[in-house]
Amino acid sequence: MERILFYAFGALAVLGSLWMVTRRSPLSSALSLVVVFVALAAMYALLDARLLFVVQVWVYAGAVMVLVLFVIMLLNLREEESRAAAASWGKFVLCGALAVALATKAFGVLAGVLAVPPPVSKDWGGVASVAEILFTRYLVPFQIVGVLLLAVVVAVVALAKRAR
């Protein structure tokens, strides 16, 4: 069952990201990126990362992508010239061949390394267990991120104001 879910959502993530990279309209790129983010959230659920599952859906598929879609619609972007997209088709095919070669090679090398995850407690990956390590061992990085977010708020307000 877990294997079926992994391959279903993995295929969804790869196809969604390929669709995102090849679309000419930024709007359809953004919407397929939402699909990729939700598929990755499903991966986190498969890996018992309960808190990160919720954070992924809220912050990435929710907040960040709403911001991107808002900017795309605000700027009312036209589609790219077809010349640029057509010129890169050869590159896409080359990269695809390299990716398949890399994946098969890596599969051979990595198969069997850490194949079975260790058993974990019921709360593992939940809010309480992640908060416990976040507020003890990683307290300083957490505080630095808080300062960074404050700086970003000030910077974005300054950028938006100067444009007037």
Partner: peptide
């Protein structure tokens, strides 16, 4: 069970 290499 899915192995680590598949995620990687």
């Amino acid at each position: 069970m899915v192995g680590l290499h598949e995620y990687l």
